[in-house]
Computed example of a mutant assay.
Amino acid sequence: MTVGEKIKVLRKQLKLTQDDLAKKLGVAPTAVSAWERNANKPLMDKIMVMAELFNVPFTHFFEVDEYDDTYEVKLPLYGNVSCGEGLLVFETPTEYRATPEDWIKSGDYFYVRASGDSMIGARIYDGDILFMRKQEEVENGEIAAVCVDDEIVLKRVFRTNGSFILQSENPNYPPRIFNPKTDKNVRIIGKLEKLIVEF
Rank of each mutant, 00 (worst) to 15 (best):
D183I: 10
D102I: 12
E85V: 05
V49R: 05
E63L: 07
S82R: 08
N170F: 09
P42E: 00
Y78C: 05
S115M: 03
P174Q: 10
L10G: 07
E72H: 15
L16G: 02
G141K: 10
V148R: 05
D149T: 10
Y125T: 00
W103Y: 15
W103M: 12
S82E: 11
V112K: 04
A31I: 07
V186G: 11
T30G: 03
D69N: 15
Y78W: 06
M132K: 08
V27G: 02
L10E: 11
D183Q: 03
I165M: 07
L192E: 00
T99C: 15
T94F: 02
N55K: 14
V89R: 02
V81C: 04
L166F: 09
K155I: 06
V138E: 02
N80P: 00
I129C: 04
S168A: 15
E5M: 01
Y111P: 05
V56S: 14
R133W: 04
E72L: 13
G190R: 10
F110H: 04
K24S: 12
F164C: 00
C83A: 10
F62P: 02
P174N: 12
A22C: 03
T99G: 13
L21M: 08
L16A: 00
N55E: 13
M132Y: 01
F58C: 11
M1E: 04
E36A: 08
E142C: 03
S168F: 04
K46W: 04
N185Y: 04
R113C: 01
D149F: 14
L14M: 10
H60N: 05
S168M: 12
K191C: 03
R37N: 14
E85G: 03
R133V: 00
D117L: 10
R37K: 15
V64T: 04
T2G: 02
A22G: 11
V89E: 12
E66W: 01
M48N: 14
F62W: 14
N161D: 14
N161L: 11
Y71D: 09
D150W: 15
E95F: 08
F54C: 11
L25M: 03
I196K: 05
T70H: 12
L21P: 06
E36L: 06
F164G: 08
R97D: 05
A122C: 07
R113V: 01
R97E: 12
K191V: 01
T92W: 04
I143G: 00
F131H: 04
S106W: 06
L88V: 15
M50Y: 02
F62D: 12
Y78M: 09
A22I: 02
A39F: 09
N38G: 13
V146P: 14
E139T: 06
E91V: 02
S168D: 09
D45T: 03
I177P: 06
V81I: 15
V3Y: 14
T17D: 08
G79H: 04
I7G: 05
P180K: 03
